[in-house]
Design a protein around this nucleic acid. Structure first.
Lengths: 359, 359
DNA sequence: GCTGGCACTCAAGTGCGAAGAGTGCTAGTG
DNA sequence: CACTAGCACTCTTCGCACTTGAGTGCCAGC
């Protein structure tokens, strides 16, 4: 009872046909559409073998075959074709990203939108974060008398700001001075570093440094809390969710950002595209959904996660290809916006997109 | 056939009971739970009158009564009690907002979260925007050599930024100079104003001004495009959406921000809380859902919209009360962060929340 | 090793009757 | 005149038996 080439082929047909039609696939259908040179009886014998191996199963005696989670796993590992999106599609997507290129905050949002539409499933994207947020530049803008806006440019290229109420009023020059000083003093510091350094400062500087520390802390926390998701409508349209109560746990997991974090953090263990199928999920509520994920970003420190989420009956090939491609596009964008002194990235970037100033 | 006091009372009972139970309400139930001093036959006679007036209806002969859209409308207009949330609840909510007070960007997100949980329905919130975005302060942060981050503080208190690729490299002093100059020159200008002014500038200044103009334009566009929503799970749990395909149009409307814009813009016509019921919706796809909306913000120019969205069978009283209360809380927050020179707002605000600097 | 043929199983649909909920109407009462 | 008791009527819902058809499993034969 080994996994002959023909059996593998049959498994592939079962998965692909089932993903397409959502109906358990019968020996008859396989013969008609794929393996025209043998009879349905032969196929049935082979399918029985695949079932014994635990790769496919029977909802009931008189029904066709459905892949099991291990079946999908084998398919993903050995059988699937994940060819890249078509050149036309690639161009469209690159173009969309190019349009929002100067607007770092919208990358993740756009990515979730593009991904969910391309794969017709839900997509989740975390914005770019450092594993530990570090300050790169601090600026202060006066809002009015005793209120200032503290803006911190993080090493990751993201920008965060907070309103700060000052004890005394401060002029613009004073604010600029503080901003410049803190930029220098706090350079590349993490939240704890800033807190430590703040002890050596005085008065207004100290208050601002405290705000910076809060911002960094929050950025650390937010890593997986603030996620963009889209395409819930696609998932609900799938036949496995005709009764919406089945979808409720999934949707609540999506809305409660942190729950997804646990899932997404898996993407950090390995590079490349990662597939999690049904019962392989650590989260109880996701035992009937699959995820295709990959990190994007730059280096080991500055990263985000892309994820496609849907029922286990999912077009894995397409999902993997799209996730891989979009991660690649984002990698280039990120590289271009990170101050790392490596000119190679700039070249890459200039090739892919035009300068904002030439718009 | 007039609307006597008793008939109004009965209509109120029908609406409240139906909202609670989701089951058509029978004369029997009304007698048992509300009007114990008359017989069910009497109630039936009265209900028949209400039906003739078009305020309630019959799914079929042997079923109880269900409110019609005009019935809900009358209820909302004349019968509903929208008492404020309990003091404890008010405190909890104020506390939550206080915690993110310095972080303008998260207000809308938090509002949608609080609202959807309190009313157990979906909630949509647009972030604060001016009807026309105006520049208040421009700052430039060097990212690396020829790349700078243009940060614009809008009159509304929101902050936007874009990456800008410069033609020539510029030092920090030069960037500061440009930032200060543009802050002065572009003060209170809209996108068109900035574009016009830019003609008089030269070189790098012009490029930055162009970026500012783009930022303002985008802020104008985004007014209703970028919405926060939450609580889809709650809506799907309602019995009217057991078959999820009924919920798909609603969810897609939510995900496609602009479609909701049409709905939300109604909130601007009138102040106070606005209720739109089922067929009153302009959007075809929302004919079975109701919305409770209000704007929040400061003055006529700086505003956002709060909205509860769910099936017509909705706890209107509770929804109106919560929307009103949260709009009020946000009003105070916004007032405190806007530079309008009116000290009254500051006093208000200091009462409600503590300074960030005293954390 | 493959195939045709056939018995078997089970889900899904159909028709029917009984039960139950709720109404509408009518005649009767204070 | 407003209210009520009572009852016939309607329509949904549920359970049940029956039929249909898809699809399998297996076996004998090539």
């Amino acid at each position: 009872m080994e996994l002959t080439a023909r059996r593998q082929r049959l498994l592939k047909h079962v998965v692909e046909e089932y993903v397409k039609s959502a109906v358990p696939v019968s020996s008859e259908v396989i013969v008609r559409r794929y393996e025209t040179d043998v009879s349905s009886a032969t196929v049935r014998n082979e399918l029985a073998q695949l079932e014994e191996l635990g790769l496919i199963s029977h909802p009931h005696t008189s029904a066709g075959r459905v892949p099991t989670d291990p079946g999908y796993r084998f398919f993903v590992e050995h059988l699937m074709d994940a060819e890249s999106p078509s050149p036309g599609e690639q161009r469209t997507i690159r173009h969309q990203f190019h349009q929002v290129e100067p607007d770092v905050d919208r990358w993740a949002h756009l990515a979730s939108s593009v991904l969910s539409n391309a794969v017709q499933n839900a997509a989740v994207v975390t914005p770019l974060t450092s594993s530990r947020a570090r300050s790169r530049r601090v600026a202060l803008l006066g809002v009015h008398d005793t209120v200032a806006l503290v803006t911190v440019l993080l090493h990751s290229g993201a920008v965060r700001q907070q309103i700060l109420h000052l004890d005394d009023s401060a002029g613009r020059d004073e604010l600029d001075r503080i901003g410049n000083k803190l930029t220098a003093v706090l350079d590349s510091q993490t939240a704890e570093g800033v807190a430590r350094t703040a002890d050596g400062l005085s008065g207004a500087e100290r208050a601002v440094a405290a705000a910076v520390a809060r911002i960094l802390e929050q950025a650390d926390q937010q890593a997986f809390e603030e996620v963009y998701y889209e395409g819930v409508g696609h998932v609900l349209s799938q036949p496995e969710f005709t009764y919406s109560h089945k979808a409720v746990p999934l949707i609540q997991a999506l809305e409660r950002g942190p729950m997804v974090g646990q899932l997404l953090s898996q993407a950090f263990d390995a590079s490349g595209v990662h597939v999690v199928i049904g019962t392989e999920h650590p989260l109880e509520q996701m035992r009937e959904t699959s995820a295709v994920l990959a990190r994007y970003g730059h280096g080991d420190d500055i990263q985000g996660v892309l994820c496609v989420l849907g029922p286990t009956r999912m077009p894995y090939g397409r999902a993997v290809a799209m996730v891989r491609f979009i991660a690649h596009v984002l990698d280039l964008l990120v590289a271009a916006s990170v101050a790392d002194g490596d000119p190679a990235y700039h070249v890459d970037h200039k090739v892919g997109t035009a300068d904002a100033s030439t718009n």
